[in-house]
């Protein structure tokens, strides 16, 4: 199972992320992870939230360009070398990672992965020391 990531188009403009987080906060939507891909004039904010459908609705109402992307969310032990082991395994099986971001939470580390081949990636991850989250 994959999870839904929100991808949001943002102009590189002061305060724009602030506006977005304010809107989500106002509607009680909690952000669990995010990362920003940026170019000289625009950025794409990648966001994992607790209530995906409501977040999409709320942001579309505020005229944001939003879309949903399937990504893989894994949880591995927060110890040195554990992520490396997983990535090594994926690489050996020709799975290319377009982007990823991670955050540690106590003795666990959460990693969001956007692979070139989701099905194959999921299958290979099952052989690794990690949990695949479905939120």
């Amino acid at each position: 199972m994959t999870i839904k990531q929100l991808s949001i188009f943002l102009e590189n403009k002061t305060g724009r992320i602030n506006e977005l987080t304010k809107i989500l906060g106002k509607h009680g939507i909690n952000m669990q992870a995010f990362s920003m891909a940026e170019t000289s004039d625009f950025g794409i904010l990648r966001l994992i939230v607790d209530d995906v459908e409501r977040a999409v609705e709320v942001l579309r109402n505020e005229s944001f360009a939003v879309m949903l992307t399937d990504v893989v969310h894994i949880c591995c032990p927060n110890v040195a070398g554990s992520l490396s082991e997983i990535l090594e395994h994926l690489a050996q099986n020709d799975i290319f990672i377009e982007y990823m971001y991670a955050f540690a939470d106590g003795d666990k580390a959460n990693v969001i992965i956007m692979p070139n081949d989701i099905e194959k990636c999921m299958a290979e991850l099952k052989k690794c020391t990690c949990d695949i989250n479905t939120l």
Partner: peptide
């Protein structure tokens, strides 16, 4: 202005 329906989450596509 980018039209909402044509936004893609892929930076390469947007570029």
């Amino acid at each position: 202005e980018l039209r909402k329906d044509f936004f893609s989450a892929d930076v390469g596509g947007m570029l």
